[in-house]
Design a protein around this nucleic acid. Sequence first.
DNA 1: TAGGCCATCTGGTCCT
DNA 2: AGGACCAGATGGCCTA
Length: 331
Amino acid sequence: MAKAYVKSKEMVELVSTSSWMDKGLGSQNEMKEEERRPSAYGMLGSLTEEHDSIEEEEEEEEDGEKPKRRGPKKKKMTKARLERFRARRVKANARERTRMHGLNDALDNLRRVMPCYSKTQKLSKIETLRLARNYIWALSEVLETGQTPEGKGFVEMLCKGLSQPTSNLVAGCLQLGPQSVLMEKHEEKSPICDSAISVHNFNYQSPGLPSPPYGHMETHLLHLKPQVFKSLGESSFGSHPPDCSTPPYEGPLTPPLSISGNFSLKQDGSPDLEKSYSFMPHYPSAGLSSGHVHSTPFQAGTPRYDVPIDMSYDSYPHHGIGTQLNTIFTE
DNA sequence: TAGGCCATCTGGTCCT
DNA sequence: AGGACCAGATGGCCTA
């Protein structure tokens, strides 16, 4: 490891101009990054120093008393080779940045479908992944048992392995309570997390913590988006409904709650996912706790996303996924 | 100030 | 050869 580090430092000297090359070729976006992190681009040396380093290295190779190195002879770093190397490096850096941005975008999308999402207080990457694991696990438990875990248990499932601050956040976001209805009404007005709202609607709220976008956990459980169900497996959910094909999730940061479960409809009668992105079926909490998950009592006359849940192994390939994930993610 | 988190650069490896 | 992916190193920012 230390060896790799030393080698890396040598290469830094060799290609020390990559910083200004990046500057020169970088897009506007990249320049923004540069402004944000000036030292990351400016920590390398100058072009002159670099050439000196190359000469020194090659001299060492040739006139040392050590036995000559085996293998293909190292090509001399001519100016042309150096230029090509730099160009490759600059391109590779740009690709790597783009790749990491894509990764971060995906992570952001994941954050948005987590039980507690806040624009202002983002979960860290690792906490997002942990919470996602727990969330999938918890939901799979719901599917398997056909029952909604009682509040505390569900929160405990979600918080397993999470840091204390994140656990507090999740607990605050999924707080159950008689205020939940009030919460939904507030959310209808302002779906984005709003600490002012949370003060009124949660038993617990840490100072500065964002309030939940989904209200209490019962509504959240039923807040699964059609494409989420669809992605769980065609075999288990069939093709209901026929027009259920939804684009990749690129909706609002926090999907607006639809208290009635109604979609805004386009003129052709299809749900207008832009206006009412999410859905929330009529789901009496009594029904939730008594294991009526299989029948989704959507309001009559409204577009439905029926989710026929078959718990058999054959038709539900994801059976036990929670356990599997738990194994996979065990740290 | 230490520690956590993050973005970036980088070289290595694998694949097409 | 070149791109994708990965992991290590580094330095900046933020917070307790």
